[in-house]
Design a protein around this nucleic acid. Structure first.
Length: 255
DNA sequence: ATGTCGGGCACAGCCCGA
């Protein structure tokens, strides 16, 4: 099985990139984040021509997640279970396909909106951990991938690109990420590449791409049995060098 | 200090978020 996750920063601006990438890679599933469109205008037809059905949770202007699948699936959740929010943002979708539970997430960045904005990030991470614990207690094969907006350690960012109190590297952010690992999930990339400096995001400003000053914030977390079956993990840096790229690139796992 | 994108609003540049 081959699964990829990609924050595309607008589905409308990146349709042709995604179509090209699907034709090249033929993943079983592609997780998309920051589609930035309402569910009703997601361009499903383009992907259906390539054999993919879409599960979409969109909203106006911001956020938005979708899963493209070559296999039959059922949608389990359109909001992260346990998240107490009157009007939840479009940040989570979960399906079951090939007897695996697949969760696609776009975690709040946490740098805007002051204290409340950062708290929303921690609330999301806490709800995610509780949900992960439930599924692992049931011995479900499961996988949670997406834009976590977390640099797990100092090895996951280029030195000096973020201030120490940035929400992507703050103590509580990293502690909550470690909790997911201690529950039993593994960070797929670090299973195979424990030390390498590998990034999935380069800011559009300040020549970050040209200087290779990036962040590793897009992650694929695997339940124990899937970890045992892990074959390859790859970050597709080439996408960042294309014309009009997203600021994130795909992370691809095979198991 | 600035740098770059994308979307909304409303139709021209600002504002927000990243």
């Amino acid at each position: 099985m081959k699964l990829a996750s990609w924050n595309v920063n607008s589905i409308r601006q990146r349709q042709s990139h995604i179509r090209d990438w699907l034709q090249k890679e033929h993943p079983d599933w592609l997780f998309l984040q920051e589609i930035k469109c309402e569910t009703s205008i997601f361009p499903q037809e383009i992907f259906e021509e390539l054999g993919y059905k879409a599960a979409v949770v969109g909203q106006k202007a911001y956020n938005g997640v979708a899963i493209l699948s070559r296999h039959p699936f059922e949608i389990l959740h359109k909001v992260l279970p346990g998240l107490k929010d009157e009007q939840p943002q479009a940040r989570y979708i979960e399906i079951k396909s090939q007897d695996i539970i697949l969760g696609n997430l776009y975690l709040p960045n946490g740098n805007s909106g002051g204290t409340a904005g950062y708290q929303a990030k921690l609330d999301f991470m806490n709800a995610l951990a509780d949900h992960v614990k439930d599924l692992l207690d049931q011995e479900q094969n499961c996988l949670f991938a997406g834009d976590y907006n977390v640099c797990p350690t100092d090895n996951d960012l280029s030195p000096g690109v973020l201030p120490p109190d940035d929400a992507l590297v703050r103590y509580s952010t990293r502690a909550n990420f470690r909790r997911l690992l201690w529950l039993g999930l593994s960070d797929a990339l670090r299973v195979l590449y424990p030390e390498e400096k590998l990034y999935t995001f380069w800011d559009y400003t300040k020549g970050r791409w040209q200087r290779d000053q990036g962040l590793r914030i897009d992650h694929v977390l695997l339940s124990p049995r899937l970890t045992e079956q892990l074959k390859t993990v790859r970050i597709d840096r080439e996408e960042r060098a294309r014309e009009q790229p997203s600021d994130h690139v795909p992370i691809v796992v095979e198991f």
